[in-house]
Write a protein that binds this DNA or RNA. Structure first.
Lengths: 232, 232
DNA sequence: ACAAAAGTGTTCCCGCTACACCCATGG
DNA sequence: CCATGGGTGTAGCGGGAACACTTTTGT
């Protein structure tokens, strides 16, 4: 194989699975494509990586273009390169996922031309997606389902202040099974990564629950990891 | 960004971390490069992926060219695409690892021209590698160290028949810590994935140990996975 | 007989599971 | 006062960790 410099122009893409939690449902961000191929189909937000940017920053840029959000930690999880995955040629794609907090800004307008609109799609009514994106989604979903069972990463999806019941619901949705309330609370508090606030829920027609906050410091101490949740 | 068809020719590479276990040491397969850049440096076996092959088959081909081995199950673990990782341009690389049984054929002759020689390098004396291969290696090594603690994947490194002590040594080398003999045996036998043979070690000047074999059937039953160890 | 590794059980502790009732609040 | 979710404890079980001596074999 020749290795002439002009051959060193890789063309490849990034695709992102962006999880959000809203109205008790797990959702992911999809775009409706506005160009061929698969014009009009739903797809994962993703596009070509520029020659001058790293894969990570491309992922961040795409996420920004679809949501207006910046500085979200994304994790690479797999690279898909089947020969026939793109009808126009050989395009490999590096897949990332992110979990974001979607408060207020529920209706997102994409800042790009390649997407007609962006929507939060409940995971349970996922349509068939463009390219091999359905497959990418399944693999990514499996990944976070796995990860959440041994690492407390669900906070990223919740508002800053949340109740234990909200947190539990989120786990139940992701893991797709009922959890025991007492055991869940015991275990979660035993992790010692939550800070109990002097504040309660408001506006509910039943006993208000205590609010909690995720405590980055304690998390870092226990898991001796960088605080990768929100890259600063 | 334009998306003219002639731009749809990705150029990218595959790099492989191939683990072997020999003389009580964990080793990985390195090649000595025979072309620029990094001519003469040690590197992970890897090369460009052809336009007509999938990433997986490219990985297999490369492994074959370096070792003569076929049908080894390789697992993709990360894609590296930092801008400056290749001095001649933007080249992203998809990294795989494999664990192989290296009996008899300790001296491998590469079937390629881009490698001057292939060597089994003990992990503990790893030199600095070409490109960002040292980083790739560290990430891959961490991956298998992680994986081995919750999935019994170490058999692939041992000869077909092995003693429990050999298996334990292998775990100790990978995890880099001493394990308790009784607990190790108890746990390993409890997995119920070993078949005890009617055969003993030979040629040792002490009490001969029983030989065991990895039992694919039982493994598949417990882990309900395909028998991915040796793809047939 | 001695050197070297094979082989073997028990106890303790911790974390997970299962399970049901009273409490606070708003309407 | 009632409906709704908030909040709490305990007992049993199972898996992991710690720990030391006897057996077999070749030299």
């Amino acid at each position: 194989m020749e290795n002439l410099p002009q051959h060193f122009d890789s063309v490849f893409t990034v695709d992102c699975i962006i999880f959000g939690f809203d109205e008790g449902e797990l959702k992911i961000l999809l775009i409706e494509r506005n160009e061929e191929p698969f014009n009009g189909w739903f797809a994962l937000p993703g596009y070509f990586v520029e020659k001058t940017e790293s894969i990570e920053s491309a992922a961040e840029r795409i996420l920004y273009e679809c949501t207006g959000l910046k500085g979200i930690y994304m994790e690479q999880f797999y690279t898909f390169g089947a020969l026939e995955r793109h009808p126009q040629g050989r395009v490999i794609t590096v897949a990332y996922y992110a979990m974001i907090r979607l408060t207020n800004q529920k209706d997102l307008k994409p800042v790009t031309t390649f997407a007609r609109q962006a929507v939060w799609m409940p995971v349970k009514d996922m349509p068939e997606l463009a390219f091999d994106h359905s497959r990418i989604f399944r693999k990514g979903f499996e990944k976070i389902r796995n990860k959440i069972s041994y690492q407390p990463i669900a906070f990223e999806l919740l508002p800053e202040k949340f109740t234990l019941t909200q947190l539990q619901h989120l786990y139940e949705v992701i893991l797709n099974k009922k959890l025991d309330k007492r055991n869940f609370r015991k275990k979660m508090l035993a992790y010692d990564i939550l800070k109990e606030l002097d504040e309660k829920q408001k506006g509910v027609s039943y006993r208000a629950a205590k609010l909690y906050k995720f405590d980055k410091r304690k998390y870092a101490k226990h898991f001796n990891k960088e605080l990768t949740f929100t890259k600063e």
